[in-house]
């Protein structure tokens, strides 16, 4: 078998692969066009300009009303997703690092608590945990009239958590609070669920990173007279971070993708709003395309960052 026939074979394989891929794509596309015509469903992104006609439960940065367009509604969904993802990442990192360090502590009780936490959170599906937290927040919390008030101006009830802002303070009027800023039960449940779930995975990453640092490093530091906290801070953690960062960013990405489960508990994130829009306009393909494009952009950006990190900050 000469090299020529080998090369020809490879070209043939690749040509076949392209042909199959194009063939399948053409099959799908032509069927879709036919089906859409048959069902009289519009196509294209023109619907983004039309009036949405539905309310959105909460919005973090943008003003929105039912008269606004679908496009604006989707934008609100996007900001809601980013809001819960960013806050969730911060909380999960803090909690996860603490638990990861706790798993390595000398104290037996601390180690066991942390290990039990990690085992439990990792072996129960996130959706179950979200439903659980949602049940806790709606069933377990008292009504507005009997709301808990751990701090002045802050009220915990089954209608949400109310905070005072700089301009207004929540006050009980009738059956609910008015004024201040509110974290809906949906947001609270989603945030707590995402943060506690992802923290368990981050804890394992932190633990593995610290264990990956050679024992001799700690010994050399101790032999030089450095204390335990100093050794951890100056010698172990900097080396552990290099092992921790790649899988950590992967978890951040997972948290962002997992926030899409918001649709199951009624938090108006991007997927949830896109779903409503798809149901109202029937334009499912455009809706799903938007969802996938957004998440793909987020994950490819994070991948790009990871590649940059590996190339520039890897051990010299």
């Amino acid at each position: 078998m000469g090299r020529h026939s080998g090369k020809a074979k490879r070209l043939a394989y690749q040509a076949a692969a392209i042909a199959v891929a194009l063939g399948v794509a053409w099959f799908f596309v032509s069927n879709t066009i036919a089906n859409l015509e048959e069902r009289k469903i519009a196509s294209g992104f023109g619907f983004l300009g039309r009036e949405a006609g539905f309310e959105i439960g909460e919005s973090f940065f943008l003003r929105y009303g039912a008269a606004d367009s679908y496009g604006r509604a989707l934008l609100v969904g996007l900001t809601n997703t980013l809001a819960v993802a960013l806050i969730g990442i911060v909380l999960a990192t803090c909690l996860g690092t603490a638990i990861g360090l706790a798993r390595l502590a000398r104290n037996f009780l601390l180690r066991s608590f942390a290990a039990a936490y990690v085992e439990f959170m990792r072996n129960v599906p996130l959706l179950v945990q979200l439903f659980f937290w949602y049940a806790v927040v709606t069933e377990g919390m008292p009504g507005p009239r009997e709301a808990l008030s751990p701090l002045p101006g802050v009220f915990l009830s089954n209608r949400g958590i109310f905070f005072p802002t700089l301009s207004s303070v929540p006050e009980l009027q009738g059956f609910n609070f008015v004024g201040g800023m509110v974290l809906t039960p949906e947001f609270a449940a989603l945030l707590i669920g995402l943060a506690t779930y992802t923290a368990a995975f981050i804890a394992e990453i932190v633990r593995a990173g610290i264990l990956a640092v050679d024992r001799g490093q700690g010994e050399a530091a101790h032999a030089l007279g450095l204390s335990r906290p100093q050794t951890t801070r100056l010698v172990v953690l900097p080396q552990a971070l290099r092992v921790i960062v790649p899988p950590m960013t992967s978890q951040y990405l997972n948290l962002t993708k997992n926030s899409s489960l918001a649709v199951a508990i009624g938090y108006p994130d991007l997927v949830s709003i896109a779903n409503t829009s798809m149901n109202q306009t029937g334009q499912a393909i455009e809706g799903i395309a938007i969802i996938m494009a957004v998440y793909l952009t987020i994950s490819l950006s994070i991948s790009a960052f990871m590649n940059w990190y590996n190339a520039h900050v890897a051990f010299k």
Partner: peptide
Amino acid sequence: IELIRGVPLISLLFMASVMLPLFLPS
């Protein structure tokens, strides 16, 4: 691989549930 791993499972389920019937002959 990168496409599937970059999007949430839920979008794939929606895709299958809603779009797959459109991809096939009526």
